[in-house]
Amino acid sequence: MEERNFICICCPMGCSLTVVMKGEEVVEVAGNTCKRGDIYARNEVINPMRMVTSTVKVIGGRENVVSVKTKEDIPKGKIFECVRALKDVKVNAPVYMGDTIMKNVANTGVDIVATKNVECKEA
């Protein structure tokens, strides 16, 4: 039996989670105060996931950049691949919250969407 400790990040409670493993199998999750903690702990030992937030360049907008996010969490190991994929992305203003900026980023099956509105620059 192996014990692994995490701090739950699902909410600000930051519960200290203990996952008891038998080989690859989760035997028990302790320390969580809600169901989400249990799910988080199980994912965290097998396939940790994160939402990635960043910016991409905007052409002709009131701002130089627009903030974006992965629409859902992506595998932790894919974070830098995801960020790198955004390096040369340029979008034309206007951009609206929820607009898809890139599909299937880093082959995760998850899209990148804008999280802010950027209007066109006044002439």
Partner: peptide, 12 residues
């Protein structure tokens, strides 16, 4: 800071 931020922003 919040614990989640230490995990997500530093430890990761």
């Amino acid at each position: 800071g919040l614990k989640r931020n230490i995990v997500q922003c530093l430890d990761d």
